[in-house]
Design a protein around this nucleic acid. Structure first.
Length: 272
DNA sequence: CCCGGAACCTGAAGGC
DNA sequence: TGCCTTCAGGTTCCGG
């Protein structure tokens, strides 16, 4: 599932391919993935526009155009953005972009949940996101204030895009394990030391995952088709039943807010 | 603010 | 082997 490290990998990999190129054509095989404007207007307005730069906010990829508009993509669970090679048919290609140099880009998404927008004001799409956890402004104090006075489980807040942008299920589990904090702990019950450990764990886990080009655990691949390798560094995420790499206790799985949360019941002390 | 559930999707995994 | 059910997950929306 593309979370921050996966989308950042896509951004870095595709920069040289996209920047300076113009869109020559768009084929929408699943028009419902376009949320704004209408699919017809989306395709018509995109063709001819040049890519100025690639950016990322949270799990959103932002393609800034010379017109001042932005093409924004969200990959949800199963989306990836692949440079198409040859003329092989991919039944999961939901949108195909052709560039002015003949390069083709496929928005591949088996579960059809990815979304796209073409907007003049990025804020209408990404305006409510919380801070970027890898930017210098994301200090210990930033995190502490975002968790203070919140009674929800810390795991739920880490996955809330309005609290921190880009953290999803996998990396929330990994960060909580690295910080030794139980996912059900009430956010307002964390000590200063725990928030400090969590802050360090978040930046470390996300930064390391970017260095490994993201985690290929479901349908995520890098734009060139290579898998990421961050999943090999996971200690608890999706490791239910396997022994904790620190103490050997079997990793447990617990639904929190409808999402499977993996943790070590010994290393991550119980709530309360 | 917090919570649960539904909706969107389909491949994978489990039960019988 | 095959049919059927359930699950997974990010986001949004709705109701309590």
């Amino acid at each position: 599932m593309p979370e921050l490290p996966e989308v950042e990998t896509i951004r870095r990999d595709l920069g040289p391919t996209l920047v300076g190129r113009r869109f020559a054509g768009v084929t929408l095989n699943w028009p419902r993935m376009v949320l704004y404007p209408s699919p017809e207007a989306f395709s018509r307005l995109l063709v001819g526009k040049m890519v100025n730069e690639l950016d990322r906010r949270g799990k959103y990829l932002i393609v800034r155009l010379d017109s001042g508009e932005a093409l924004i993509l969200h990959f949800r669970m199963s989306g990836s953005l692949l440079v198409a090679r040859g003329d092989e048919h991919d039944r999961y290609c939901r949108a195909l972009f052709t560039l002015d140099d003949g390069t083709r880009l496929c928005f591949r998404d088996p579960r059809k949940m990815g979304k796209m927008w073409l907007v003049e004001d990025e804020g209408v799409v990404v305006g409510r996101l919380g801070p970027e956890p890898l930017e210098s402004g994301f200090t210990l104090d930033t995190l502490a204030r975002r968790l203070d006075n919140r009674t929800a489980p810390v795991k739920a807040l880490l996955c809330d895009q309005a609290v921190i942008a880009g953290v999803g299920n996998m990396y929330a589990d990994e960060a909580l394990f690295a910080a030794g904090i139980h996912p059900l702990r009430r956010a307002d019950s964390l000590t200063t030391e725990e928030v400090e450990r969590l802050h360090g764990a978040l930046t470390r886990v996300l930064g390391q995952a970017i260095g490994s080009h993201g985690a290929s655990i479901t349908d995520y691949w890098r734009p060139g088709g290579e898998p990421g390798t961050a999943q090999f560094e996971f200690k608890v995420a999706h490791h239910g039943g396997r022994p904790c790499p620190v103490c050997g206790t079997p990793i447990e799985r617990l639904p929190i807010r409808g999402r499977g949360s993996y943790f070590c019941p010994r290393c991550q002390c119980q709530p309360g």
